[in-house]
Design a binder for these strands. Sequence first.
RNA 1: GGCGCCGUACCCAAGUGGCUAAGGGAGCAGUCUGCAAAACUGCGAUGCAGCGGUUCGAACCCGCUCGGCGCCUCCA
Length: 488
Amino acid sequence: MKIYNTLTNKKEAFEPLENNLVRMYVCGVTAYDDCHLGHARSAVVFDVIRRYLTFRGYQVKFVRNFTDIDDKILNRAVEEGIPWNEVSAKYIEAYSHDMNRLQVSIPDVEPRATDHMQEIIEMIKALVEKGHAYRIDGDVYYHVPSFEGYGRLARRNLDELQAGARVEVDERKRDPMDFALWKGAKPGEPAWQSPWGPGRPGWHIECSAMSIRHLGETFDLHGGGKDLIFPHHENEIAQSSAVTGKAFAKYWLHNGMVTVDEEKMSKSLGNFFTIKDIFAKSNSSESITAETLRYFLLSTHYRSDLNFSNQAVSAAKAALDNLYGLFQRLEEPTCGETADTKSFQGMIEGFKSAFLHAMDDDFNTPKALGEFQRLRSEVNGYLQSGLSKGSRKNVLETFPQLGEPLGLFQMAPKEWEFRPMSFAVTQPGLQADSGQILTDDWIERQVQKRVEARERKDFATADQIRKNLAAQGITIEDRPDGTSRWKR
RNA sequence: GGCGCCGUACCCAAGUGGCUAAGGGAGCAGUCUGCAAAACUGCGAUGCAGCGGUUCGAACCCGCUCGGCGCCUCCA
Protein backbone atom coordinates (compact mmCIF):
# COMPACT_ATOMS: atom_id res chain seq x y z
CA MET A 1 0.00 0.00 0.00
CA LYS A 2 1.20 3.46 -0.84
CA ILE A 3 0.27 6.66 0.92
CA TYR A 4 1.22 10.21 0.02
CA ASN A 5 2.97 11.84 2.96
CA THR A 6 2.91 15.63 3.18
CA LEU A 7 5.98 15.44 5.39
CA THR A 8 8.15 14.01 2.63
CA ASN A 9 6.09 15.24 -0.31
CA LYS A 10 5.90 11.83 -1.92
CA LYS A 11 4.12 8.52 -1.95
CA GLU A 12 5.60 6.10 0.54
CA ALA A 13 5.07 2.43 1.24
CA PHE A 14 2.71 2.23 4.20
CA GLU A 15 4.15 0.45 7.20
CA PRO A 16 2.47 0.83 10.58
CA LEU A 17 4.75 1.45 13.53
CA GLU A 18 3.43 -1.58 15.35
CA ASN A 19 2.51 -4.77 13.54
CA ASN A 20 -0.88 -4.34 11.96
CA LEU A 21 -2.11 -1.70 14.37
CA VAL A 22 -2.83 1.70 12.82
CA ARG A 23 -3.32 4.67 15.06
CA MET A 24 -4.82 7.68 13.30
CA TYR A 25 -5.83 11.14 14.37
CA VAL A 26 -7.87 13.56 12.32
CA CYS A 27 -8.60 17.18 13.15
CA GLY A 28 -12.33 17.57 13.52
CA VAL A 29 -14.25 20.81 13.73
CA THR A 30 -14.68 23.75 16.02
CA ALA A 31 -18.24 23.45 17.20
CA TYR A 32 -19.66 26.92 16.63
CA ASP A 33 -21.84 26.50 13.52
CA ASP A 34 -23.39 23.94 11.19
CA CYS A 35 -20.82 22.08 9.13
CA HIS A 36 -20.61 22.59 5.39
CA LEU A 37 -19.61 20.38 2.51
CA GLY A 38 -15.92 21.08 3.08
CA HIS A 39 -16.10 19.67 6.59
CA ALA A 40 -18.08 16.76 5.24
CA ARG A 41 -15.46 16.02 2.63
CA SER A 42 -12.73 15.76 5.20
CA ALA A 43 -14.89 13.51 7.36
CA VAL A 44 -15.87 11.27 4.44
CA VAL A 45 -12.34 11.05 3.07
CA PHE A 46 -10.85 9.95 6.38
CA ASP A 47 -13.81 7.70 7.02
CA VAL A 48 -12.99 5.93 3.76
CA ILE A 49 -9.31 5.73 4.67
CA ARG A 50 -10.18 4.26 8.02
CA ARG A 51 -12.67 1.82 6.50
CA TYR A 52 -10.24 0.74 3.80
CA LEU A 53 -7.41 0.14 6.26
CA THR A 54 -9.81 -1.97 8.31
CA PHE A 55 -10.95 -3.74 5.16
CA ARG A 56 -7.31 -4.49 4.40
CA GLY A 57 -6.95 -6.23 7.74
CA TYR A 58 -5.42 -3.52 9.87
CA GLN A 59 -6.63 -2.91 13.35
CA VAL A 60 -7.38 0.80 13.34
CA LYS A 61 -7.74 3.10 16.30
CA PHE A 62 -9.31 6.24 14.97
CA VAL A 63 -9.52 9.50 16.91
CA ARG A 64 -11.25 12.67 15.72
CA ASN A 65 -11.56 15.61 18.05
CA PHE A 66 -14.04 18.37 18.74
CA THR A 67 -12.78 21.82 19.60
CA ASP A 68 -15.33 22.87 22.17
CA ILE A 69 -13.69 25.98 23.61
CA ASP A 70 -12.50 28.74 21.33
CA ASP A 71 -12.95 32.43 20.54
CA LYS A 72 -15.50 31.67 17.85
CA ILE A 73 -17.59 29.67 20.26
CA LEU A 74 -17.51 32.54 22.74
CA ASN A 75 -18.52 35.03 20.06
CA ARG A 76 -21.32 32.79 18.98
CA ALA A 77 -22.55 32.49 22.53
CA VAL A 78 -22.81 36.27 22.74
CA GLU A 79 -24.65 36.39 19.40
CA GLU A 80 -27.13 33.72 20.36
CA GLY A 81 -27.41 34.87 23.93
CA ILE A 82 -26.77 31.43 25.38
CA PRO A 83 -23.93 29.99 27.48
CA TRP A 84 -20.80 29.05 25.54
CA ASN A 85 -21.04 25.39 26.48
CA GLU A 86 -24.54 25.22 25.08
CA VAL A 87 -23.18 26.51 21.79
CA SER A 88 -20.55 23.78 21.58
CA ALA A 89 -22.97 21.08 22.75
CA LYS A 90 -25.52 22.16 20.18
CA TYR A 91 -23.12 22.11 17.25
CA ILE A 92 -21.39 18.91 18.29
CA GLU A 93 -24.84 17.38 18.25
CA ALA A 94 -25.54 18.92 14.82
CA TYR A 95 -22.22 17.69 13.46
CA SER A 96 -22.81 14.18 14.74
CA HIS A 97 -26.27 14.20 13.21
CA ASP A 98 -24.93 15.29 9.80
CA MET A 99 -22.12 12.72 9.86
CA ASN A 100 -24.58 10.03 10.76
CA ARG A 101 -26.75 10.95 7.78
CA LEU A 102 -23.70 10.81 5.54
CA GLN A 103 -22.96 7.30 6.81
CA VAL A 104 -19.67 8.45 8.29
CA SER A 105 -18.80 5.83 10.87
CA ILE A 106 -18.19 6.97 14.42
CA PRO A 107 -14.54 7.30 15.50
CA ASP A 108 -13.25 5.12 18.31
CA VAL A 109 -12.64 8.23 20.37
CA GLU A 110 -14.11 11.72 19.93
CA PRO A 111 -12.17 13.71 22.49
CA ARG A 112 -13.08 17.25 23.47
CA ALA A 113 -10.63 19.91 24.51
CA THR A 114 -12.50 20.73 27.71
CA ASP A 115 -12.22 17.11 28.85
CA HIS A 116 -8.43 17.24 28.54
CA MET A 117 -7.49 20.34 30.49
CA GLN A 118 -5.19 18.37 32.75
CA GLU A 119 -3.20 16.94 29.84
CA ILE A 120 -3.09 20.31 28.10
CA ILE A 121 -1.81 22.09 31.19
CA GLU A 122 0.78 19.38 31.86
CA MET A 123 2.02 19.70 28.33
CA ILE A 124 2.33 23.47 28.51
CA LYS A 125 4.14 23.12 31.81
CA ALA A 126 6.61 20.75 30.20
CA LEU A 127 7.15 23.17 27.33
CA VAL A 128 7.86 26.01 29.76
CA GLU A 129 10.27 23.84 31.74
CA LYS A 130 12.14 22.81 28.63
CA GLY A 131 12.51 26.39 27.53
CA HIS A 132 10.19 26.14 24.54
CA ALA A 133 7.54 28.38 26.05
CA TYR A 134 7.40 31.51 28.12
CA ARG A 135 4.89 33.39 30.13
CA ILE A 136 3.65 36.92 29.61
CA ASP A 137 1.26 37.88 32.37
CA GLY A 138 -1.52 35.30 32.21
CA ASP A 139 -0.61 34.08 28.74
CA VAL A 140 1.86 31.43 27.67
CA TYR A 141 3.52 31.48 24.25
CA TYR A 142 5.40 28.87 22.33
CA HIS A 143 8.76 30.19 21.21
CA VAL A 144 8.96 29.06 17.59
CA PRO A 145 12.73 29.58 17.01
CA SER A 146 13.38 27.21 19.92
CA PHE A 147 12.27 24.27 17.81
CA GLU A 148 14.82 23.33 15.24
CA GLY A 149 12.63 21.53 12.74
CA TYR A 150 9.99 24.26 12.55
CA GLY A 151 8.65 24.68 9.02
CA ARG A 152 9.55 21.22 7.82
CA LEU A 153 5.97 20.12 7.17
CA ALA A 154 4.93 23.28 5.36
CA ARG A 155 8.37 23.55 3.73
CA ARG A 156 9.04 27.02 4.90
CA ASN A 157 11.80 28.70 6.80
CA LEU A 158 11.36 31.31 9.47
CA ASP A 159 12.75 34.15 7.40
CA GLU A 160 10.21 33.58 4.67
CA LEU A 161 7.43 33.39 7.16
CA GLN A 162 8.34 36.61 8.88
CA ALA A 163 8.78 38.42 5.59
CA GLY A 164 5.23 37.49 4.68
CA ALA A 165 3.70 38.06 8.07
CA ARG A 166 0.40 39.85 7.69
CA VAL A 167 -0.77 39.96 11.27
CA GLU A 168 -0.14 42.85 13.53
CA VAL A 169 2.59 41.68 15.83
CA ASP A 170 2.10 41.56 19.55
CA GLU A 171 5.09 43.55 20.78
CA ARG A 172 5.38 41.50 23.94
CA LYS A 173 6.21 38.33 22.04
CA ARG A 174 9.85 37.34 21.70
CA ASP A 175 9.33 36.44 18.07
CA PRO A 176 6.54 37.42 15.71
CA MET A 177 5.92 33.75 14.92
CA ASP A 178 5.35 32.73 18.53
CA PHE A 179 1.84 31.48 19.16
CA ALA A 180 -0.40 31.18 22.20
CA LEU A 181 -0.50 27.97 24.20
CA TRP A 182 -2.56 29.45 27.00
CA LYS A 183 -4.76 32.51 26.98
CA GLY A 184 -5.43 34.29 30.25
CA ALA A 185 -9.13 34.86 30.82
CA LYS A 186 -10.64 38.29 30.45
CA PRO A 187 -13.45 39.17 32.84
CA GLY A 188 -16.57 37.17 32.14
CA GLU A 189 -14.84 34.57 30.04
CA PRO A 190 -14.89 30.86 30.91
CA ALA A 191 -11.67 29.84 32.59
CA TRP A 192 -9.79 26.87 33.94
CA GLN A 193 -7.26 27.11 36.75
CA SER A 194 -3.63 26.85 35.75
CA PRO A 195 -0.17 27.68 37.08
CA TRP A 196 -0.43 30.89 35.03
CA GLY A 197 -3.79 31.88 36.41
CA PRO A 198 -7.29 31.30 35.07
CA GLY A 199 -7.56 30.91 31.30
CA ARG A 200 -8.09 28.55 28.39
CA PRO A 201 -5.87 26.73 25.94
CA GLY A 202 -4.82 28.01 22.54
CA TRP A 203 -6.10 26.08 19.57
CA HIS A 204 -3.06 24.06 18.55
CA ILE A 205 -2.14 22.56 21.90
CA GLU A 206 -5.35 20.58 22.32
CA CYS A 207 -4.63 18.37 19.31
CA SER A 208 -1.15 17.60 20.59
CA ALA A 209 -2.44 16.76 24.05
CA MET A 210 -5.40 14.70 22.90
CA SER A 211 -3.61 12.74 20.20
CA ILE A 212 -0.78 11.82 22.56
CA ARG A 213 -3.25 10.96 25.30
CA HIS A 214 -5.24 8.58 23.11
CA LEU A 215 -2.65 7.31 20.64
CA GLY A 216 0.72 7.69 22.30
CA GLU A 217 3.67 9.98 21.70
CA THR A 218 4.30 8.66 18.21
CA PHE A 219 1.50 7.35 16.04
CA ASP A 220 0.89 6.44 12.41
CA LEU A 221 -1.47 8.77 10.61
CA HIS A 222 -2.44 12.37 11.15
CA GLY A 223 -4.97 13.95 8.84
CA GLY A 224 -6.94 17.07 8.13
CA GLY A 225 -7.73 19.61 5.45
CA LYS A 226 -4.76 20.99 3.60
CA ASP A 227 -5.55 24.43 4.94
CA LEU A 228 -4.42 23.10 8.31
CA ILE A 229 -0.88 22.32 7.21
CA PHE A 230 0.20 25.74 8.26
CA PRO A 231 0.20 26.79 10.95
CA HIS A 232 -1.92 24.24 12.79
CA HIS A 233 -0.12 21.01 11.97
CA GLU A 234 3.27 22.65 11.93
CA ASN A 235 2.57 23.87 15.45
CA GLU A 236 1.32 20.49 16.59
CA ILE A 237 4.60 18.95 15.55
CA ALA A 238 6.60 21.69 17.25
CA GLN A 239 4.69 21.30 20.52
CA SER A 240 4.61 17.54 20.58
CA SER A 241 8.13 16.74 19.55
CA ALA A 242 9.53 19.46 21.79
CA VAL A 243 7.89 17.77 24.77
CA THR A 244 8.46 14.12 23.92
CA GLY A 245 11.74 14.42 22.06
CA LYS A 246 10.26 11.92 19.63
CA ALA A 247 8.76 11.97 16.18
CA PHE A 248 5.07 12.86 16.30
CA ALA A 249 3.00 11.38 13.44
CA LYS A 250 4.68 9.22 10.82
CA TYR A 251 2.38 9.98 7.89
CA TRP A 252 0.60 13.29 7.35
CA LEU A 253 -2.41 13.21 5.03
CA HIS A 254 -4.25 16.26 3.77
CA ASN A 255 -7.45 16.46 1.81
CA GLY A 256 -8.09 19.10 -0.86
CA MET A 257 -10.61 21.87 -0.49
CA VAL A 258 -14.18 21.93 -1.70
CA THR A 259 -14.62 24.92 -3.97
CA VAL A 260 -17.54 26.82 -5.44
CA ASP A 261 -16.85 28.50 -8.77
CA GLU A 262 -13.23 27.43 -8.22
CA GLU A 263 -12.99 29.34 -4.96
CA LYS A 264 -12.49 27.70 -1.61
CA MET A 265 -15.74 27.10 0.24
CA SER A 266 -15.46 28.95 3.50
CA LYS A 267 -17.33 30.83 6.13
CA SER A 268 -15.50 34.05 5.50
CA LEU A 269 -16.30 34.07 1.78
CA GLY A 270 -19.89 33.16 2.51
CA ASN A 271 -19.93 30.68 -0.38
CA PHE A 272 -20.67 27.62 1.70
CA PHE A 273 -23.41 25.03 1.53
CA THR A 274 -24.26 23.38 4.82
CA ILE A 275 -24.99 19.69 4.94
CA LYS A 276 -28.23 20.51 6.68
CA ASP A 277 -29.34 22.69 3.77
CA ILE A 278 -28.28 20.23 1.13
CA PHE A 279 -30.37 17.51 2.75
CA ALA A 280 -33.28 19.86 3.29
CA LYS A 281 -33.35 21.01 -0.32
CA SER A 282 -32.78 17.63 -1.90
CA ASN A 283 -35.74 16.07 -3.67
CA SER A 284 -34.47 12.60 -2.79
CA SER A 285 -34.66 10.59 0.39
CA GLU A 286 -31.99 11.07 3.03
CA SER A 287 -30.16 7.83 2.32
CA ILE A 288 -30.12 8.44 -1.42
CA THR A 289 -28.92 12.01 -0.98
CA ALA A 290 -26.22 10.72 1.35
CA GLU A 291 -25.00 8.10 -1.07
CA THR A 292 -25.03 10.58 -3.94
CA LEU A 293 -22.97 13.04 -1.92
CA ARG A 294 -20.51 10.33 -0.98
CA TYR A 295 -20.18 9.24 -4.59
CA PHE A 296 -19.68 12.86 -5.60
CA LEU A 297 -17.09 13.47 -2.88
CA LEU A 298 -15.17 10.32 -3.84
CA SER A 299 -15.25 11.00 -7.56
CA THR A 300 -12.21 13.24 -7.22
CA HIS A 301 -8.98 12.12 -5.58
CA TYR A 302 -8.87 13.22 -1.93
CA ARG A 303 -5.80 15.39 -2.39
CA SER A 304 -7.25 17.46 -5.23
CA ASP A 305 -9.67 20.31 -4.83
CA LEU A 306 -13.24 19.47 -5.69
CA ASN A 307 -15.63 21.93 -7.26
CA PHE A 308 -19.22 21.74 -6.03
CA SER A 309 -22.00 22.31 -8.52
CA ASN A 310 -25.50 21.08 -9.13
CA GLN A 311 -24.34 19.56 -12.38
CA ALA A 312 -21.54 17.58 -10.73
CA VAL A 313 -23.85 16.16 -8.08
CA SER A 314 -26.43 15.29 -10.73
CA ALA A 315 -23.76 13.39 -12.63
CA ALA A 316 -22.96 11.44 -9.48
CA LYS A 317 -26.64 10.62 -9.04
CA ALA A 318 -26.94 9.50 -12.66
CA ALA A 319 -23.87 7.29 -12.29
CA LEU A 320 -25.44 5.66 -9.22
CA ASP A 321 -28.77 5.26 -11.04
CA ASN A 322 -27.02 3.08 -13.57
CA LEU A 323 -25.51 0.91 -10.88
CA TYR A 324 -28.74 0.51 -8.92
CA GLY A 325 -30.56 -0.16 -12.19
CA LEU A 326 -28.27 -3.12 -12.69
CA PHE A 327 -28.83 -4.34 -9.13
CA GLN A 328 -32.57 -4.18 -9.68
CA ARG A 329 -32.36 -6.22 -12.87
CA LEU A 330 -30.10 -8.76 -11.19
CA GLU A 331 -32.67 -9.31 -8.47
CA GLU A 332 -35.49 -10.04 -10.88
CA PRO A 333 -36.41 -13.67 -11.41
CA THR A 334 -34.46 -15.19 -14.27
CA CYS A 335 -36.30 -16.38 -17.33
CA GLY A 336 -33.56 -18.48 -18.82
CA GLU A 337 -30.77 -20.13 -16.93
CA THR A 338 -27.34 -20.22 -18.46
CA ALA A 339 -24.30 -21.97 -17.14
CA ASP A 340 -21.45 -20.11 -15.52
CA THR A 341 -18.66 -19.36 -17.88
CA LYS A 342 -15.01 -19.24 -17.00
CA SER A 343 -14.75 -15.76 -18.39
CA PHE A 344 -17.32 -14.55 -15.89
CA GLN A 345 -15.31 -15.69 -12.88
CA GLY A 346 -12.18 -14.21 -14.40
CA MET A 347 -13.96 -10.93 -14.99
CA ILE A 348 -15.06 -10.69 -11.36
CA GLU A 349 -11.59 -11.54 -10.12
CA GLY A 350 -10.11 -8.99 -12.51
CA PHE A 351 -12.41 -6.35 -11.10
CA LYS A 352 -11.52 -7.16 -7.51
CA SER A 353 -7.84 -6.93 -8.13
CA ALA A 354 -8.23 -3.67 -10.08
CA PHE A 355 -10.26 -2.22 -7.21
CA LEU A 356 -7.65 -3.17 -4.62
CA HIS A 357 -4.89 -1.89 -6.83
CA ALA A 358 -6.59 1.48 -7.17
CA MET A 359 -7.27 1.83 -3.46
CA ASP A 360 -3.83 0.61 -2.47
CA ASP A 361 -2.39 3.46 -4.49
CA ASP A 362 -2.99 6.33 -2.09
CA PHE A 363 -6.73 5.65 -1.88
CA ASN A 364 -7.50 6.37 -5.52
CA THR A 365 -11.27 6.42 -5.16
CA PRO A 366 -11.99 7.94 -8.61
CA LYS A 367 -10.12 5.07 -10.20
CA ALA A 368 -11.95 2.62 -7.95
CA LEU A 369 -15.32 4.08 -8.95
CA GLY A 370 -14.29 3.75 -12.57
CA GLU A 371 -13.65 0.06 -11.96
CA PHE A 372 -17.13 -0.35 -10.47
CA GLN A 373 -18.58 1.28 -13.58
CA ARG A 374 -16.58 -0.95 -15.81
CA LEU A 375 -17.88 -3.97 -13.89
CA ARG A 376 -21.41 -2.66 -14.34
CA SER A 377 -20.89 -2.44 -18.07
CA GLU A 378 -19.40 -5.95 -18.22
CA VAL A 379 -22.23 -7.49 -16.22
CA ASN A 380 -24.83 -5.71 -18.33
CA GLY A 381 -23.18 -7.29 -21.33
CA TYR A 382 -23.49 -10.75 -19.79
CA LEU A 383 -27.08 -9.98 -18.90
CA GLN A 384 -27.89 -9.48 -22.59
CA SER A 385 -27.21 -13.14 -23.23
CA GLY A 386 -28.17 -14.52 -19.82
CA LEU A 387 -26.47 -15.03 -16.52
CA SER A 388 -26.80 -17.90 -14.07
CA LYS A 389 -28.44 -17.46 -10.70
CA GLY A 390 -25.14 -18.06 -8.96
CA SER A 391 -23.38 -15.41 -10.98
CA ARG A 392 -26.13 -12.91 -10.34
CA LYS A 393 -25.79 -13.54 -6.66
CA ASN A 394 -22.06 -13.21 -6.97
CA VAL A 395 -22.37 -9.76 -8.54
CA LEU A 396 -25.01 -8.68 -6.05
CA GLU A 397 -22.66 -9.58 -3.24
CA THR A 398 -19.53 -8.14 -4.80
CA PHE A 399 -20.84 -4.59 -5.05
CA PRO A 400 -21.77 -4.11 -1.40
CA GLN A 401 -18.76 -6.07 -0.25
CA LEU A 402 -16.21 -3.90 -2.04
CA GLY A 403 -18.41 -0.84 -1.78
CA GLU A 404 -18.33 -1.03 2.00
CA PRO A 405 -14.94 0.69 2.41
CA LEU A 406 -16.34 3.55 0.36
CA GLY A 407 -19.65 3.50 2.19
CA LEU A 408 -21.49 2.82 -1.07
CA PHE A 409 -23.94 0.23 -2.45
CA GLN A 410 -25.31 -0.77 0.93
CA MET A 411 -28.90 0.02 0.07
CA ALA A 412 -31.51 -2.48 -1.10
CA PRO A 413 -32.09 -1.92 -4.85
CA LYS A 414 -35.81 -1.44 -4.37
CA GLU A 415 -35.18 1.51 -2.07
CA TRP A 416 -33.42 3.42 -4.82
CA GLU A 417 -35.27 6.16 -6.66
CA PHE A 418 -34.32 7.04 -10.20
CA ARG A 419 -35.52 10.60 -10.39
CA PRO A 420 -32.82 13.13 -11.29
CA MET A 421 -31.50 14.80 -8.19
CA SER A 422 -31.90 18.49 -7.63
CA PHE A 423 -31.41 20.77 -4.70
CA ALA A 424 -34.02 23.37 -5.50
CA VAL A 425 -37.60 23.39 -6.67
CA THR A 426 -37.11 23.54 -10.41
CA GLN A 427 -40.47 22.77 -11.97
CA PRO A 428 -43.16 23.53 -9.44
CA GLY A 429 -45.81 21.56 -11.32
CA LEU A 430 -43.81 18.38 -11.37
CA GLN A 431 -42.30 18.85 -7.98
CA ALA A 432 -45.56 19.33 -6.17
CA ASP A 433 -46.96 15.90 -6.84
CA SER A 434 -43.82 13.89 -7.38
CA GLY A 435 -43.90 10.21 -6.49
CA GLN A 436 -43.56 10.60 -2.75
CA ILE A 437 -47.26 10.53 -1.94
CA LEU A 438 -47.94 7.63 -4.29
CA THR A 439 -48.03 4.24 -2.65
CA ASP A 440 -46.32 1.26 -4.19
CA ASP A 441 -49.66 -0.52 -4.25
CA TRP A 442 -51.32 2.22 -6.26
CA ILE A 443 -48.47 2.33 -8.76
CA GLU A 444 -48.53 -1.45 -8.97
CA ARG A 445 -52.23 -1.38 -9.86
CA GLN A 446 -51.65 1.25 -12.55
CA VAL A 447 -48.86 -0.79 -14.03
CA GLN A 448 -51.04 -3.90 -13.98
CA LYS A 449 -53.86 -2.06 -15.75
CA ARG A 450 -51.37 -1.02 -18.41
CA VAL A 451 -50.10 -4.57 -18.82
CA GLU A 452 -53.67 -5.70 -19.39
CA ALA A 453 -54.29 -2.91 -21.88
CA ARG A 454 -51.19 -3.92 -23.79
CA GLU A 455 -52.35 -7.53 -23.83
CA ARG A 456 -55.49 -6.53 -25.67
CA LYS A 457 -53.44 -4.19 -27.89
CA ASP A 458 -55.15 -1.14 -26.47
CA PHE A 459 -52.03 0.99 -26.83
CA ALA A 460 -53.89 4.26 -26.44
CA THR A 461 -54.87 3.37 -22.89
CA ALA A 462 -51.47 1.88 -22.17
CA ASP A 463 -49.68 5.01 -23.34
CA GLN A 464 -52.00 7.23 -21.36
CA ILE A 465 -51.24 5.32 -18.15
CA ARG A 466 -47.53 5.51 -18.87
CA LYS A 467 -47.79 9.22 -19.51
CA ASN A 468 -49.69 9.83 -16.29
CA LEU A 469 -47.15 7.91 -14.27
CA ALA A 470 -44.29 9.70 -15.98
CA ALA A 471 -45.80 13.00 -14.90
CA GLN A 472 -45.51 11.73 -11.33
CA GLY A 473 -41.89 10.78 -11.79
CA ILE A 474 -42.52 7.09 -12.39
CA THR A 475 -40.70 5.42 -15.27
CA ILE A 476 -41.98 2.24 -16.87
CA GLU A 477 -39.77 -0.32 -18.54
CA ASP A 478 -41.35 -3.19 -20.46
CA ARG A 479 -39.67 -6.56 -20.39
CA PRO A 480 -39.62 -8.90 -23.40
CA ASP A 481 -42.00 -11.32 -21.68
CA GLY A 482 -44.82 -8.76 -21.54
CA THR A 483 -44.41 -7.81 -17.89
CA SER A 484 -43.24 -4.37 -16.79
CA ARG A 485 -41.00 -2.94 -14.12
CA TRP A 486 -41.31 0.56 -12.74
CA LYS A 487 -38.89 2.97 -11.12
CA ARG A 488 -39.39 6.10 -9.13
C1' G B 1 6.52 39.25 -2.34
C1' G B 2 7.56 33.94 -0.46
C1' C B 3 6.10 28.65 -0.47
C1' G B 4 3.13 25.01 -2.92
C1' C B 5 -0.57 22.79 -6.19
C1' C B 6 -3.06 22.56 -10.79
C1' G B 7 -4.37 23.26 -16.33
C1' U B 8 -6.46 15.97 -20.00
C1' A B 9 -12.91 15.87 -24.95
C1' C B 10 -19.09 19.88 -24.24
C1' C B 11 -18.92 18.96 -18.44
C1' C B 12 -16.61 15.91 -14.45
C1' A B 13 -12.24 12.87 -13.95
C1' A B 14 -8.14 8.68 -13.84
C1' G B 15 -3.49 8.18 -16.01
C1' U B 16 2.84 10.98 -14.30
C1' G B 17 8.25 7.69 -19.44
C1' G B 18 6.76 2.79 -23.75
C1' C B 19 0.10 -1.48 -25.66
C1' U B 20 -5.58 1.71 -29.49
C1' A B 21 -5.02 8.48 -23.46
C1' A B 22 -9.60 4.56 -17.92
C1' G B 23 -14.42 5.71 -16.27
C1' G B 24 -18.94 8.78 -15.51
C1' G B 25 -22.41 12.69 -17.25
C1' A B 26 -24.42 15.08 -21.64
C1' G B 27 -24.91 14.21 -27.12
C1' C B 28 -25.54 11.58 -31.87
C1' A B 29 -26.46 6.90 -34.61
C1' G B 30 -27.81 1.66 -34.66
C1' U B 31 -29.92 -3.09 -32.26
C1' C B 32 -34.20 -4.26 -29.31
C1' U B 33 -39.51 -2.40 -28.71
C1' G B 34 -46.58 -1.76 -30.82
C1' C B 35 -44.24 3.01 -29.53
C1' A B 36 -41.08 3.97 -25.52
C1' A B 37 -37.73 3.21 -21.49
C1' A B 38 -33.59 0.48 -20.01
C1' A B 39 -29.61 -2.27 -21.78
C1' C B 40 -26.12 -3.32 -25.57
C1' U B 41 -23.06 -1.71 -29.89
C1' G B 42 -20.82 2.22 -32.49
C1' C B 43 -19.18 7.57 -32.96
C1' G B 44 -16.56 11.39 -30.23
C1' A B 45 -9.30 14.36 -27.63
C1' U B 46 -3.86 12.17 -34.37
C1' G B 47 -3.89 14.80 -29.02
C1' C B 48 -3.23 16.06 -22.88
C1' A B 49 -2.70 25.18 -21.73
C1' G B 50 1.44 27.18 -25.18
C1' C B 51 6.56 27.11 -26.74
C1' G B 52 11.32 24.98 -26.39
C1' G B 53 14.59 20.99 -24.45
C1' U B 54 16.20 15.87 -22.58
C1' U B 55 15.21 10.83 -24.52
C1' C B 56 15.14 5.53 -29.20
C1' G B 57 10.36 7.16 -27.01
C1' A B 58 6.82 12.36 -22.95
C1' A B 59 0.31 14.18 -21.22
C1' C B 60 4.01 12.20 -17.79
C1' C B 61 11.08 14.56 -16.85
C1' C B 62 13.58 19.82 -17.36
C1' G B 63 13.12 25.20 -18.67
C1' C B 64 10.31 29.38 -20.01
C1' U B 65 5.44 31.68 -20.98
C1' C B 66 0.18 32.11 -20.19
C1' G B 67 -4.04 30.93 -17.06
C1' G B 68 -6.36 29.21 -12.36
C1' C B 69 -6.14 27.99 -7.19
C1' G B 70 -4.35 27.23 -2.08
C1' C B 71 -1.26 28.64 2.14
C1' C B 72 1.68 32.59 4.42
C1' U B 73 -4.53 35.27 9.41
C1' C B 74 -9.37 31.73 11.97
C1' C B 75 -10.33 27.82 8.55
C1' A B 76 -11.82 20.73 6.82
